[in-house]
Design a protein around this nucleic acid. Structure first.
Length: 574
DNA sequence: ACGCCTGTGCGTGCCTATCTTCTGATAGG
C-alpha cells in the first residue's frame, strides 16, 4: 500500500537531521521539518490527494521539490535524496543529534575532533574524560551526556496524559502553598489536552521567581534539578518526566500563559500577526515600542491582534487562527453535552460490575441512556457471549429497565469483526440488538490492504451502527494496526455508520486529526467510554478532550442527542 | 527548500532564558 503521511513525515524529519548535521542551509532544514509537520496535521492522506490528481504544491510549505519527493515516497516508501544523504552521513550521528545537550554544532565537533559516530563511542569518550577539552564542551556537559546515555534519556519518551494528571494535581497543590505565589497554572501540551505529553509546563505568578524555583527543587518528588534561574527552573520528576516551571509577574500572566501553552507553531503565527501590526509579543506582554498594551490575561493578547480567545485544544496552527479571524471557531463539545454512552461491559462478559451498578453509575453521571455491549463469542478471553447467552442477558436488561427510572439501558453487543470481515454473530441475533458495535480484536498484523478490506466489509453490513476503536492502538504499548483510515472514514460517512471515539485514556482513537477528518467528510462520531467498571464511566472526559482537539461540536457526536432523538437514528439501520 | 517576484534571484515563521559557554549553543512554548 502507498506510504502514509507518517512515513513521509519520518523521511523528511530524517532528511532534516542529516542536512543539519552536514551544516547545510538552515532554511532547507526548516523546510523539511515544516513539511513533516504539515503532513502530520493534514487530516487527509497525501497518497489519496495524489491519486485524485490534486496539486500538492498548494499545501503550505510544499513546493515543487517536496511534492516530487512525496510522490516518490508514496510510490517507493523512500526517496533517492534520503538514500544519498544516508550514504554521506554516518548513521549514528543522527542518534547523537537527539542526545540532550547536543545540537548540530557539537555533533560535528565530536565527529571531526574525535571520530565519534555512535552513542557507544560517545559514552566511551565521555567516561575517558575526553569531551571536556573540546571547544563548546565542559566538565558538566560531559557528565550530563554520560548520564543521559546511561539512562537512555536520549529516547524521546512521551507519557499518556492521564498518567501525569495526578502528578500535576500534587505539583499544583504544593506550589500553590508557597508564600508569595499568587497563582499556579498548567500549560503546554497538558493544557492543550494532547493524548500524550513529553514534559510538564507550569506557570506561576510571583514577585520572587528564584524562590519558587527553590521550592520546586525542594519538592519531595523531585529526582533531579536540571537548571534553575531567576525566572525559570527545570527538574526531573521521580517518574521520569521533566517539569519546566516559569515564573512571571502578575501583569504578564496572560502573555506568559499564552506563550507557555503553545503550541510553538501557534505562538509563532500569533507573534507574526503582532509584527504585522507593529507589535512585539513575548511572554511578558504585548508591546508597542516600549509600552505594554496587553498581557494581563490571554484574551487581551488575542485582542491585540484582533482575534477572539482561542481554546487551548485548538492551538496547533492547524487553521484555528484563520477560523478565529473569520469568526468561525467551532463551538467545541463539552462533557455536559453527552446524554448517553454507547459502549460498555458488565460481569456478563469481561466487566467488573453488574448491570444495575453500571446503570446507577451512568445515571449518577448525568446520562440518560447506556448501551450494554458485551463481547461476542469469538473473544473467549473476554468471556464473549453466544446467541443464547446474549438473549438471556437481554431478558435481564428488560427486567431491569422495567424497574429503573431516569436511565434506560439499550440492548447491544460488541461483535467481533472476523479476519475476513464477516461478523461473529448471525444476522438474526444482530437484528435483536438495539445497538450493534463492531470491533477488531484479532489478527492485528494483517497488511493494510487486507485490514482495510476487512473493516470496509464490516462497515457495509447493514446492521452495524458503530465501528469501535478504529485503530486498536494502545498509547505507548501497541501501535495502530495498518489500515487506510481515510478509506474507512469515507465509507463510514457514505454508509451512515458511526465511528467511535473510544474514551479509554489508553486508546483515544480516533485521534484528533482523524476526528477532524471524519467531521470534514461528514461521518458522525460516537463518543463512548468502553467502561469495564462503573468508575470507568468517568473516562468520558478523556474522550471529550480528544474530541475538542478534533474540532468536534455537539452536533458531530451522536450521543449528545437525547434518547428520543437517537432511537430513530438507530432504527434507521434496521 | 519554499515562495514571491522576477526574469535564472533573494530573503526566509518569534522571542527569551540558561548553561554547556564565552559572545555562542541549546532549549523552550
Amino acid at each position: 500500500m502507498a506510504a502514509d503521511n507518517e512515513t513521509i513525515a519520518a523521511v523528511f524529519d530524517e532528511l532534516a537531521d542529516l542536512h543539519e548535521i552536514e551544516g547545510d542551509n538552515p532554511f532547507r532544514v526548516r523546510a523539511y521539518r515544516n513539511a513533516a509537520r504539515t503532513l502530520r496535521g493534514l487530516g487527509r492522506e497525501a497518497a489519496q490527494l495524489l491519486a485524485a490528481g490534486e496539486d500538492l504544491t498548494r499545501l503550505p510549505g510544499i513546493g515543487r521539490e517536496l511534492a516530487a519527493k512525496i510522490a516518490e515516497i508514496v510510490a517507493t516508501g523512500t526517496c533517492a535524496a534520503l538514500e544519498r544523504a544516508r550514504a554521506r552521513v554516518p548513521h549514528g550521528l543522527v542518534e547523537l543529534l537527539h542526545v540532550p545537550g547536543l545540537g548540530p554544532v557539537r555533533v560535528r565537533t565530536l565527529h571531526r575532533a574525535l571520530g565519534i559516530d555512535s552513542p557507544e563511542a560517545l559514552a566511551e569518550a565521555a567516561r575517558a574524560g575526553r569531551l571536556r577539552a573540546l571547544p563548546g564542551f565542559g566538565e558538566r556537559l560531559e557528565a550530563r551526556i554520560l548520564e543521559a546515555l546511561q539512562a537512555r534519556l536520549d529516547q524521546a519518551r512521551r507519557f499518556p496524559l492521564h498518567k501525569v494528571e495526578p502528578v500535576v494535581a500534587r505539583l499544583l497543590a504544593y506550589l500553590r502553598h508557597t508564600p508569595g505565589v499568587a497563582r499556579v497554572e498548567p500549560a503546554g501540551s497538558f493544557r492543550r489536552r494532547r493524548d500524550t505529553v513529553g514534559d510538564l509546563d507550569v506557570l506561576a505568578v510571583a514577585a520572587d521567581g528564584a524562590a519558587v524555583g527553590d521550592r520546586l527543587a525542594a519538592w519531595e518528588e523531585t529526582a533531579e534539578v536540571l537548571s534553575r534561574g531567576p525566572t525559570r527552573a527545570s527538574i526531573v520528576h521521580r517518574d521520569g518526566i521533566q517539569v519546566d516551571l516559569r515564573v512571571v509577574p502578575l501583569e504578564s500572566f496572560g502573555a506568559a500563559w499564552h506563550y507557555f501553552t503553545g503550541a510553538k507553531a501557534h505562538n509563532i503565527a500569533v507573534r507574526r500577526m503582532g509584527q504585522a501590526r507593529g507589535l512585539k509579543i513575548n511572554e511578558y506582554g504585548v508591546f508597542r515600542g516600549g509600552e505594554r498594551i496587553a498581557g494581563v490575561d490571554e484574551a487581551s493578547v488575542y485582542a491585540a491582534v484582533a482575534l477572539p480567545w482561542i481554546p487551548p485544544e485548538l492551538r496547533e496552527d492547524r487553521g484555528e487562527l484563520e477560523a478565529a479571524r473569520q469568526g468561525a471557531l467551532p463551538r467545541l463539545v463539552e462533557r455536559a453535552d453527552l446524554r448517553g454512552d454507547l459502549h460498555c461491559h458488565t460481569t456478563a462478559s469481561d466487566g467488573r460490575d453488574d448491570l444495575e451498578a453500571m446503570a446507577r453509575a451512568a445515571q449518577a453521571r448525568g446520562l440518560e441512556y447506556l448501551a450494554i455491549t458485551e463481547h461476542s463469542r469469538r473473544l473467549r478471553i473476554a468471556r464473549g457471549l453466544d446467541e443464547r447467552g446474549l438473549l438471556r442477558h437481554f431478558t435481564a436488561i428488560d427486567e431491569l429497565n422495567a424497574r429503573l427510572e431516569g436511565i434506560t439501558l439499550l440492548k447491544g453487543v460488541e461483535v467481533d469483526i472476523l479476519e475476513d470481515g464477516r461478523l461473529d454473530l448471525p444476522d438474526r441475533v444482530l437484528e435483536r440488538c438495539e445497538v450493534v458495535v463492531a470491533a477488531v480484536h484479532s489478527a492485528f498484523g494483517l497488511d493494510a490492504g487486507r485490514q482495510t478490506r476487512r473493516i470496509l466489509r464490516a462497515l457495509d453490513h447493514p446492521l452495524v451502527h458503530v465501528l469501535a476503536h478504529p485503530t486498536g492502538r494502545l498509547l505507548g504499548r501497541r501501535p495502530p494496526y495498518a489500515v487506510d483510515l481515510a478509506a474507512v472514514i469515507r465509507r463510514a460517512a457514505r454508509n451512515g455508520v458511526w465511528l467511535e471515539l473510544n474514551a479509554n485514556p489508553w486508546r483515544l482513537d480516533l485521534d484528533d486529526v482523524h476526528c477532524r477528518m471524519a467531521r470534514d467528510e461528514g461521518a458522525r462520531i460516537a463518543l463512548s467510554s468502553d467502561a469495564h467498571a462503573a468508575a470507568e464511566l468517568d473516562h468520558l472526559r478523556h474522550g471529550i478532550d480528544q474530541a475538542r482537539r478534533g474540532w468536534l461540536e455537539a452536533r458531530d457526536v451522536v450521543n449528545t442527542r437525547p434518547l428520543e432523538a437517537l432511537r430513530p437514528l438507530l432504527a434507521a439501520r434496521r
